[in-house]
């Protein structure tokens, strides 16, 4: 609770640097430089990077901060978003977990900050919405961040939920099946 309250106060100054600010007060800050496949580099502190199981395992294995690390399969835009998410949530204690049951995952509600986060993904550039969501989901899956995976899958499900089939096909660019296929599917 204390952490969260502290975070709330800092929120006016800009959220994305909060995790780094807090850690930078301590003396030696372990920082990690990440380079994406499209040659954008990011510096994050260890605490933020450890939100990702991928980095956590890597850091445990190497026992030390490696030289600039090239992250495959993740674009600069995705990584920027991921760092934004992780630096907000790095102090949370009740992150969605992989071991959660389907029911608890389903009934959990999207928080206010998360909602604006998802909305910003959509507005960021002129690309179709679902592409960005799927791209970020893929990146989150690759870096193994359970909280972000939960958030992304839930918001993708929300886009599907009340829509008729034809509209879903349009959103996801699913090819319209032929009549014969459709008959098989309807069984």
């Amino acid at each position: 609770m204390f952490h969260r309250a502290n975070l709330r106060n800092n929120s006016k100054n800009g959220r994305s640097q909060v995790g780094q600010n807090r850690n930078s007060k301590k003396k030696p800050v372990a920082k990690l430089t990440l380079i994406t496949e499209d040659n954008e580099s990011f510096t994050v502190c260890k605490k933020v990077a450890e939100m990702s199981m991928f980095f956590k395992n890597m850091l445990q294995d190497t026992e030390g901060i490696p030289a600039p690390f090239i992250v495959p399969n993740v674009s600069g835009y995705d990584l920027k978003k991921i760092i934004e998410y992780c630096s907000y949530h790095c102090l949370d204690t009740d992150c969605p977990n992989d071991n959660d049951s389907l029911r608890s995952r389903r009934d959990r509600k999207i928080g206010h900050w998360d909602e604006t986060f998802v909305r910003n993904i959509i507005n960021k550039d002129g690309d179709p919405v679902i592409d960005n969501l799927v791209g970020l989901t893929k990146a989150a899956y690759f870096l193994d961040i359970p909280g972000l995976i939960w958030l992304m899958t839930k918001s993708i499900a929300n886009t599907i939920d009340p829509k008729p089939i034809a509209e879903i096909r349009e959103i996801f660019n699913v090819p319209v099946p032929s009549e014969r296929e459709e008959e098989i599917l309807q069984r």
């Binding site: 989901t137 893929k138 899958t153 839930k154 939920d161 089939i165 879903i168 099946p177 296929e181 599917l185």
Partner: peptide
């Protein structure tokens, strides 16, 4: 483009009739 696990996680959120509907999207 999305791994199957992620697809499953997405559709786990849908209620049963909607899930059945999604199954008819494509082969």
């Amino acid at each position: 483009d999305l791994p199957v696990e992620m697809c499953l996680k997405c559709f786990a959120f849908l209620p049963l009739p909607d899930f059945a509907r999604v199954l008819r999207l494509s082969k």
